[in-house]
Design a binder for these strands. Structure first.
Length: 397
DNA sequence: GCTCCTTTGAAGCTG
DNA sequence: CAGCTTCAAAGGAGC
């Protein structure tokens, strides 16, 4: 199940079971479905908007926003002429990249997969954090790794770097400015920083913090965590097991996406100042003047407890969500999907779009990029196909 | 703008 | 191997 392969046959439509937690039904309800229709045919005559300049993206003299990824032409800018794709925002997607949901964007090295600017009528695409999402003609997916199923259709990923050098890259930014060089350096450092996967408790507090914050608004974040710690301890073994399993999946997924990575690499990267705190034994206050009252109220409040219990009812959905690498689906007619992988640029393979020949020039150009990428991938990477299910492809770096 | 606070758990380090 | 340290998340507070 978690060996990196996609057991399509075990999946339920609308769920990403092959990449645990990659999909959230809960998140689906937050997706502005009606606002993001996917055109069923190629919108002809769409003109790409110019790639924003550095100053446009990040303002003068400042590091561009990490999500801006100025070297990548986003689907928003490419296809804003139709389909309201331009309304897609990370916030809409609510992609909490899962274990990586709170990972910084630099951990999604999508910027290494530049999308050529010169494709005025490229196939409809989606992005998440600038990761291009496109649909390929049937048969193209054979050399790609399936990462899940959305609306009954397989979602594949395309490892970063497989795009051929011939792919025209986005304009290079002027890096003569020393501050920009510094920004580049910082961003490079950021990209190299891989956060550790969350443990079970981290997953728990991430899910339940909003509820606790509502209950005890007057408390600081530290006190909220104390409450969460109490609630965590009050959970049954079965309830906690859900999070342990989820954390295990996160860890395995993290290991797949970052082979060779160790928490050791992060040591010192977030080193705290010399602690002014008392030794750990006396660090925790036995009683917090304010928090203790609230804590007692929260703990004893049957309503709150009921709320927490009810939360666990929806836990199943949310549980899968919290690892969510980002999965978005749209209405059943357009059946779009967005997925995101920390090490891959995502490609949505589907036979819905048979690339129209009337757009042969631009589409062929666009297609060439993908074809070359897939070919490059299959020829250079250690792709293996599951003997049990031909839809299963594993990509080993 | 950086660090602390606060929780639990996982992993690495040290003796 | 036991015990300690660091870091995952979160955001307000303090320096």
């Amino acid at each position: 199940m978690y060996s990196g392969q996609c057991h399509v046959g075990t999946m339920q439509p609308g769920h990403l079971h092959c990449q645990p937690g990659a999909y959230s039904q809960y998140r689906l309800y937050q997706w502005p479905v009606s606002s993001v229709p996917i055109p069923m045919s190629h919108p002809a005559g769409l003109q790409p908007e110019p790639v924003p300049s550095h100053s446009e993206v990040g303002g003068s003299g400042r590091c561009p926003p990490q999500r801006a990824a100025p070297s990548v032409l986003t689907a928003t800018s490419m296809y804003s002429g139709q389909g309201h794709v331009g309304t897609m925002q990370p916030g809409h997607l609510h992609c909490q990249p899962g274990a990586y949901s709170q990972y910084r964007p630099y951990q999604w090295p999508v910027s290494r997969v530049p999308i050529p600017v010169s494709h005025p009528a490229a196939p409809p695409a989606h992005t998440y954090n600038n990761a291009p999402m496109v649909r390929l003609p049937e048969g193209f997916h054979q050399n790609l790794q399936c990462v899940g199923i959305i609306n009954g259709e397989p979602v594949f990923t395309l490892p970063a770097g497989v795009f051929p050098p011939s792919v025209p890259a986005a304009p290079q930014l002027n890096t003569s400015n020393s501050q920009e060089k510094k920004c580049e350096s910082e961003q490079e450092d950021d990209r190299l920083y891989i956060k550790r996967p969350p443990n079970a408790f981290m997953l728990y507090i991430k899910e339940h913090r909003p509820h606790v914050e509502e209950d005890v608004k007057m408390m600081g974040n530290g006190a909220v965590n104390m409450v969460l710690g109490q609630r965590w301890k009050s959970l049954s073994a079965e309830e906690r097991a859900v999070y342990y399993q989820q954390a295990q999946r996160e860890k395995e997924l993290h290991a797949q996406q970052h082979p060779g990575w160790s928490v050791r690499q992060n040591y010192g990267k977030k080193r705290k100042r010399e602690s002014k705190r008392a030794p750990k034994a006396s660090k925790r206050p036995s009683v917090l003047p304010v928090a203790s009252t609230s804590l007692a109220a929260v703990t004893e409040d049957s309503t709150s407890r009921a709320a927490v219990t009810e939360d666990s009812t929806s836990m199943a959905a949310v549980t899968e969500d919290s690892t969510s690498r980002a999965a978005v689906t749209e209405d059943s007619t357009s059946r779009g999907a967005v997925t995101e992988d920390s090490s891959c640029s995502s490609v949505y393979v589907s036979d819905i779009y048979h690339l129209p020949q009337e757009n042969s020039v631009s589409s062929a150009s666009w297609l060439h990029v993908l074809l070359t990428a897939v070919t490059s991938l299959s020829s250079s990477a250690g792709l293996t196909q599951s003997p049990a299910d031909e839809r299963i492809w594993s990509y080993t770096k």
